[in-house]
């Protein structure tokens, strides 16, 4: 940690806690960790004013590896922890991270309502289209004919969840897709997501090299979207409907005001509140 107030600039490595990640060698999540530290350094946000919040999964290990405040909660509830923290402490930069299972399966309801609520925070989903931590089951974003999941040996047979479509429909105020292979590009997008008011979601394609080794090919397949970000939700929706999931970049910048109830500092005496009970 940087205690030298005379020289406050913090390099990306200054945002690392020094705890060694448990991830498999080659896991895409390393790249995303790097991008997060670059983004925080790029914005020069103080580590003590930042909180990284997660649920459970390989990707949800993120907070431990950062030198900010962090909360590693239970499976699926990262966005709820983050919402409570941000509403209570609007002065903090709050970032939730986690996997596709954590966010869209067990945590799906919170995803919908966090988009809708539009609290001013950033959600980075490390999407590997599989449950990594529990050793390779299909996730909500897995394609229907993937037959390597032991619980679904003939494939799930059901269409994958479309996180960005659902995010847009539910009211997310900033929507982007990145690839863990593009460390600097992802860092820039995360910076923009943090700066954008309201709820920003960033889907990062982050290969699970152990259970989906074919995802190593993603770095060759992803390409920047040929168009600029739009602030028109209808246009964003049309683009998503023809999207094969491999275009990267910022798709949508909305302008809905964030949800942030005012926490008044002028405080009424409790005795005054009690007057309503007096006879």
């Amino acid at each position: 940690m940087n205690r030298n107030t005379a020289c406050p600039h913090i390099e990306p490595r200054g945002y690392k806690s020094g705890v060694k990640p448990v991830w498999c060698p080659g896991c895409g999540d390393f790249g995303v960790l790097g991008s997060i530290t670059k983004a925080l350094s790029g914005l020069q946000i103080r580590p003590e004013s930042t909180a990284i919040i997660s649920g459970i999964g390989c990707s949800s290990r993120m907070p431990t590896y950062l030198s900010t405040y962090g909360f590693h909660g239970v499976h699926g509830r990262a966005l709820s922890l983050a919402t409570g923290l941000k509403v209570a402490r609007p002065d903090l930069t709050v970032i939730a991270t986690g996997g596709d299972g954590d966010g869209f399966s067990i945590g799906g309801n919170h995803f919908l309502h966090t988009c809708r609520r539009n609290t001013n925070m950033t959600y980075i989903v490390l999407d590997n289209q599989v449950y990594g931590m529990t050793k390779g089951q299909a996730s909500p974003t897995t394609e229907p004919n993937w037959e390597k999941g032991k619980l679904t040996p003939s494939g799930t047979g059901i269409n994958p969840f479309q996180p960005l479509v659902v995010g847009l429909a539910s009211g997310a105020n900033f929507i982007a897709r990145c690839s863990s292979s593009d460390s600097n590009g992802t860092a820039r997008t995360i910076m923009e997501a943090i700066r954008h008011p309201g709820f920003s979601m960033v889907q990062v394609l982050s290969p699970c090299v152990t259970f989906r080794p074919e995802q190593r090919e993603w770095k060759k397949l992803v390409q920047p979207a040929p168009v600029e970000a739009t602030s028109d939700a209808a246009q964003a929706a049309r683009r998503l409907l023809t999207d094969k999931g491999l275009f990267t970049g910022i798709l949508f910048r909305g302008s809905r005001p964030p949800y942030q109830p005012e926490l008044k500092s002028s405080i009424e005496n409790i005795a005054e509140l009690e007057e309503e009970f007096c006879l």
């Binding site: 919402t83 509403v87 209570a88 402490r89 309801n109």
Partner: peptide
Amino acid sequence: LASINQIIGASFGGL
């Protein structure tokens, strides 16, 4: 599920 986690988050934040 959201209620309990939101209050844990807020309390982590000091309230």
